[in-house]
Design a binder for these strands. Sequence first.
DNA 1: ATGGTAGCCTTGCTA
Length: 273
Amino acid sequence: MKIATWNVNSVKARLPHVLSWLESAKPDVVCLQEIKCQTEDFPALEIKALGYHVEAHGQRSYNGVALLSREEPKDVLRGLAGDETDVQSRYIEATFSGVRVASIYLPNGNPVDTDKYPYKLGWMKRLAVRAKELLESEQPVVLAGDYNICPTDDDVYDPVGWAGDALCLPASRAAFRTILNYGYTEAYRALHKEPHRYSFWDYQAGRWHKDEGLRIDHLLLSPQAADRLVACEIDKGPRALEKASDHTPVWCEIGPAQSLEINEAPPPSGGFI
DNA sequence: ATGGTAGCCTTGCTA
């Protein structure tokens, strides 16, 4: 089961890239972020024509998340609990083949001396509560999305220059580690040790061509999902295209559920002599 | 060199 996350920076502007990537990469589930349209304006017809179900949670102009899937989603949940006053569309969750999958667009948090940063940390606290609830369900869970967090300096092209940014501040990284410490596995880092592999390159200052990026798009796996993790890759292809999003897809492959049965050898025969 | 790019349905905001 191939599960991908991709911040598309407007699903309408990126529709041709999304369609061609679905056809070439053949993911089973795609978590989209920054669809930047209201739910009813999501270009679902074109995507459904490729055999995908669509569940969107949008808003006007900003944010917005969606789940695309080969299989029909079950138990779709829109929005992150814990703050009834929060009107930003940043969270959607559903079950596919027994795997609970969330598409997450975590707040950016900049500038850090405004109310945007406390909003980010508060949102992460609510996400941690939900992550813990899901863990206690003991099902395979994949929390995928644009976390707007560089987990370590190895995930930043210029750690010194970015040290005071909301994506790199110690409090941001600590909030991210809180979720990992509950028992989630960050799929890319579990399988790849090499530093400076990125999922986002700013449009400005030729960052893509200089490979000066950030790794901020992550897939967090519960133990029941991590036990089945067989691959995780960053697909840089879509970022190289004309009219690209500033993010590129990251995907993981979850293998079939393992049987608990153990093929034991017959018990030793014979006895005391 | 204090810039630069992209998308919104705006003429500034967000990233």
